[in-house]
């Protein structure tokens, strides 16, 4: 069997997603035994020409959001030269943290043609809004997370690269994936385009903390309180987004006492993560007095930045530029 060709690239984002690939450790070595990584600027310093040289690649692993014209061109170019495209990380799946700059007007001001002091480098032109790659080109599969968990990412790559081949490896990968994807992967069929390699329920389903009655009078930021172990964080007054967020991570943040920040995006049943959180959080308010309610509501800081921390560009109904026709955004089935 000829070796499969792989391209890995990050647009606007941090190197955490690519570092997660390296975190796969020895498995990464086994990956290279049946795959050629032909394009990986982060590790190999690959030039764009190598991509043309090696012809179309079998799988392109794309991380990062689209913020500049250079990102847009890169995404289009990678799409045209790869058979399958897997978006990894919240930036590539939903727009991620970079998209938060759209909340303040003027943060994305284009300054085309700006150069550094030595007039050597040209700043790429800024896009009017930050968007996710799936709003520009067709993305086949998504592995969300900031960064994606190692196991999930490995399962996704493994199942896309050795589909229907290497049975023990596939069985291992399938055991970590949602049923529908696992079934098609073991049968040797590509999962439905647009599939998300993560769970289907909310993070609360895998969270180890006990949920009792949710009522609180005051809201705390994470540095203001040391949460009691074993009890739901939202009940303790910490803004935990587990109930609006897709599971798959295994509840690792909440287990460590950190509230869920929503990096897996919304679950299928949630229309808008912010609206869901407003509804959930408000229902925990104890008071019925408008004045008191207003005071509690005023104690919250940066709601939009919290509820849409990773998803502003694609899943916020009021910010996604073409929410009505974004048929390729993950999770719109």
């Amino acid at each position: 069997m000829p070796k499969k060709k792989l391209a890995i690239y990050t647009a606007t984002g941090c190197p955490a997603c690519e570092n997660t690939l390296l975190d796969i450790n020895y498995d990464m070595v086994s990956l290279t035994s049946n795959t050629d990584i032909v394009f990986w600027p982060y590790l190999q310093g690959s030039e764009w020409e190598t991509l043309d040289e090696y012809g179309p690649v079998d799988l392109c692993i794309l991380a990062g959001a689209v913020r500049t014209e250079a990102d847009r061109n890169a995404v289009i170019r990678l799409r045209s030269s790869s058979r399958l495209m897997l978006a990894i990380g919240s930036c590539a799946c939903f727009g991620g943290l970079p998209a938060l700059c759209d909340l303040s007007a003027g943060m994305s001001d284009s300054r085309p043609g700006d150069t550094d002091s030595g007039n050597k480098y040209l700043l790429p032109k800024m896009e009017p809004t930050v968007c996710a790659p799936c709003q520009i080109v067709n993305i086949d599969y998504f592995t969300p997370g900031c960064p994606p968990t190692r196991d999930l990412l490995w399962s996704a790559i493994q199942s896309l690269l050795s589909l229907g081949a290497n049975t023990p490896k596939i069985a291992f990968a399938a055991s970590r994936l949602p049923q529908a994807i696992a079934d098609s992967v073991t049968a040797g069929i590509l999962p439905r385009p647009g599939s998300i390699f993560a769970g289907e329920k909310a993070v609360c389903a895998t969270c180890s903390r006990t949920k009792e009655e949710k009522k609180f009078d005051a809201f705390f930021r994470t540095h203001q309180i040391d949460p009691a172990s074993g009890r739901c964080l939202l009940e303790q007054g910490i803004l935990c987004q587990g109930l609006a967020t897709r599971e798959g991570c295994g509840g690792i943040c909440t287990a460590a006492g950190a509230p869920c920040r929503g990096c897996f995006g919304r679950t299928e049943k949630v229309f808008d993560p912010g609206a869901k959180m407003v509804s959930a959080v408000s229902s925990t308010f104890n008071s019925t007095d408008p004045k008191e309610l207003k005071n509690v509501a005023d104690s919250f800081v940066d709601l939009a930045g919290t509820f849409y921390r990773y998803t502003l560009a694609t899943q916020c109904a009021l910010m996604a530029p073409n929410s009505e026709d974004s048929n390729n955004a993950p999770d719109n089935s």
Partner: peptide
């Protein structure tokens, strides 16, 4: 009363979203 409870946070969120 449930509608009233929600309205405060919702107003705040809407304001932040423009």
């Amino acid at each position: 009363i449930k509608a009233l409870r929600r309205s405060f946070l919702l107003r705040k969120l809407l304001a932040e979203l423009g």
